[in-house]
């Protein structure tokens, strides 16, 4: 039982990062049917910003907001330079465009900095553990969960109360109808990218404080997890993305502690098999997208 609860806490800690990324991925899918594989690159820029500032001995507290800001800026830049031009293109084109940006980012860091990793040391708080009863609670897990929850609440409030949130929701329901009702497409999409970039920046900060390393291809792995999380939750559904991210985080921890060791290498495969079965059983329900096109 202790182990069970301990795993749950660990899983929620990991899952909150996935969920923050997944909400951004899902939001972009909602407004423009884009599965954005370039989203992970927002973590990478954050890491290099932190590296750059930390190696000049700038305090952690100053680096984190700058890293988050850089993620927001890059997200908007990517939208402006690339996705704006292919907004009405097929999901296929959008997906490949995001891959092209991802590879471009990897190459740019590799050429601009180096393929050898750059390191920065982690602050002490990142690994602090407090013992509460039988549990080892990592302070950073608590911080991650708290920040993530604050972000989710903030997102929910933003979506319900602000004009921008309303536009996003309308656009996710039916973009053409939303435009007819006066929603400005460019502004909504650019705003969605900025917001998704903000969440990615925050997720990145949480993650990078522990990772302590910047390297060109670091963004790919967490992004893949976030995409999986968003798919589990139903692309386009923001609460779904949160649930998907948290359940993926928890599932990973449980698989790791319960699977026999010779099967542990197959953890991802188990997750994928579950997803594939879900898709076959209810492809529409999972996607949560208006599939009945107007005829």
């Amino acid at each position: 039982m202790t182990q069970f609860v301990q795993n749950l806490i660990d899983g929620l800690g990991n899952g909150s990062t996935y969920a923050l990324l997944a909400v951004g991925v899902s939001m972009l899918f909602g407004v423009m049917h884009l599965v954005n594989f370039a989203h992970g690159e927002l973590l990478t820029i954050g890491a290099y910003v932190i590296y750059g500032m930390r190696s000049n001995d700038i305090s952690w507290w100053a680096t984190i907001p700058v890293a988050i800001l850089s993620a927001v800026m890059l997200s908007m830049l990517i939208e402006f330079v690339a996705f704006r031009r292919v907004r009405t293109a097929s999901a296929f084109t959008l997906l490949l465009t995001s891959f092209a940006i991802e590879i471009l980012s990897h190459a740019a860091w590799r050429i601009g900095v180096s393929s050898t990793p750059r390191r920065f040391e982690a602050p002490d708080i990142a690994f602090k553990v407090v013992e509460i009863g039988p549990f080892n609670i990592e302070v950073w897990d608590v911080v991650s969960i708290a920040v993530a929850v604050a972000c989710f609440i903030g997102t929910a409030i933003m979506l319900r109360t602000t004009m921008f949130g309303l536009s996003i929701r309308a656009a996710s329901e039916d973009f053409d109808a939303a435009r007819l009702m006066g929603v400005k497409a460019n502004r909504v999409i650019s705003g969605a990218f900025a917001f998704a970039g903000l969440l990615a920046g925050i997720a990145g900060a949480i993650w990078l404080v522990r990772r302590g390393q910047a390297d060109p291809r670091m963004g790919a792995e967490p992004l893949l997890k976030a995409v999986i999380a968003a798919i589990i939750g139903g692309l386009g559904s923001l609460p779904g993305a949160v649930v998907g991210g948290l359940s993926l985080g928890i599932a990973e921890v449980y698989f790791r502690s319960w699977l026999p060791s010779d099967l542990q290498g197959l953890t991802d495969s188990f997750v994928f098999v579950v997803i594939a079965i879900l898709f076959v059983v209810r492809p529409q329900g999972l996607f949560n997208v208006q599939s009945a096109e107007r005829v």
Partner: peptide, 22 residues
Amino acid sequence: DKDLSFNLGDTDFSAQVNEIAA
């Protein structure tokens, strides 16, 4: 006593660490 597994790219080892601690 144990062979624990991990993946390249993992950034949280609390599952493995807790198992060793236990």
